[in-house]
Design a protein around this nucleic acid. Structure first.
Ligand SMILES: [Mn+2]
Ligand SMILES: [Mn+2]
Ligand SMILES: [Mn+2]
Ligand SMILES: [Mn+2]
Lengths: 219, 219
DNA sequence: TAATTTTGTTAGAATAATCTAACTCCATAC
DNA sequence: GTATGGAGTTAGATTATTCTAACAAAATTA
């Protein structure tokens, strides 16, 4: 079975490939905060275990076996985050660090129980899909708020990033998943948007923020 | 901060000293299933960190610092076991293996939340005391069922050992903490006891079992 | 194209945790 | 009191994960 370190590499690779379509050794080394030679040697190790496809100087990908293992770690991570929020009362900005550790617990009954207690959730507190027990994961087909137009009404359904400082920024504006907002105006110069929702008649969101908000159209 | 391995050694040492009054390197090596040289070299490491007192060929003890660290790991272990039983619906025979892993999670807020959700429990599902946040632990002053006499009525309040096969044995006889039983008779030959409780008018318990049941007198 | 920067690789070393083999110390049984 | 067996120690090796230094390949910029 994969070690904690190996699990972290597999999960990182899975996320990189999902988000950017590909991954390199230097992507991995930055994400995991290890040196390039460290990532390089771990990749050789994972290749030997037939978990990643790798040829010198070529981009990386997961084998089917590796993809499945990675998805199951991601499942444990996201189930845990949802459990911490729904069953233990944590805020969505508090759960990532804890889940980063609990995702490595080896106990099928523990995660099955979480899953059952919550009624088999399909998304985590940040709107990301939870892979199923076979390692299958729903595709994220959401639109970015930054691609919407003035006058449209949209519902916030997921976040593209979930660093706690960003989550606290959203907390400060009462923005949470499910909030429906109308796009009041878009500043042509820098792409910032003014949106209205609930008790916030005119909240200005910068372009980088709007890119991180995943929405679906309402009406 | 102590590694997972170091935490396991400290906790093992704490338990050995609590149960038997002392600990040796070979006790540790047996309990942790490592070779003697492995335990020996880890003890040197812990001594260097001033977590254990150790002189060549002498028995081991924890320093105040080491005792505190060990108690805090034990706190995480027992809080987790209680959480798994009370909040997640696990049986007392299922929780040890999971807690053995979760006890190494580094997240004060996580364990504080558990503690708060359960209303600050003082014992774990097996009746063992939960150390407080300062690492203080209540003494276990319970009597063994095997030391009680015919006719006495006692309440089961703790277990001296909690291996899952033993716990399943108790489950099969509807024995759980809080059950009040009367000692019907004691077999002089082998010390086995016949006890009656609830819907069990005459359950025979062998001496080794009776030694593992901690009780308090009722009436 | 040539120069420069970024990325990737290899070599070599360190640390933590483990092992086996060989030896020594010590309690106690004769 | 010595012999012996268990406990403890040392030496030396292994595996996993990490690093820095030096160099090579690829990509980008000029
Ligand atoms: Mn992790
Ligand atoms: Mn998440
Ligand atoms: Mn443990
Ligand atoms: Mn317990």
């Amino acid at each position: 079975m994969a070690s904690v370190t190996e699990e972290n590499y597999l999960k990182a690779l899975f996320i990189l490939v999902t988000e950017r379509g590909m991954a390199t050794i230097s992507d991995l080394s930055k994400l995991l905060k290890v040196s390039l030679p460290t990532a390089n040697s771990m990749i050789k190790n994972l290749k030997k275990q037939e978990l990643v496809n790798y040829e010198k100087y070529k981009p990386l990908s997961l084998t089917e076996k590796g993809r499945r293992e990675a998805a199951l770690v991601l499942r444990k991570h996201r189930l845990t985050e949802m459990f911490l929020v729904n069953e233990m009362g944590f805020g969505w900005e508090e759960v990532h660090e804890i889940a980063e550790q609990i995702e490595h617990i080896n106990s099928p009954i523990f995660f099955d129980r979480m899953d059952k207690l919550m009624g088999h959730p399909t998304i985590d507190p940040h709107g990301s899909p939870i892979p199923d027990k076979d390692g299958h994961i729903a595709e994220e087909v959401y639109e970015q708020l930054s691609n919407c137009r003035t006058g449209e009404k949209v519902r916030l359904i997921a976040l593209a990033h979930s660093a706690s400082d960003f989550l606290r920024y959203l907390n400060n504006r009462d923005l949470s998943l499910g909030v429906e907002m109308r796009i009041v105006s878009i500043e042509a110069y820098d792409g910032s948007m003014v949106v209205s929702y609930d008790n916030h008649p005119a909240e200005t969101l910068t372009h980088p923020v709007c890119e991180k908000l995943r929405v679906e159209k309402v009406d």
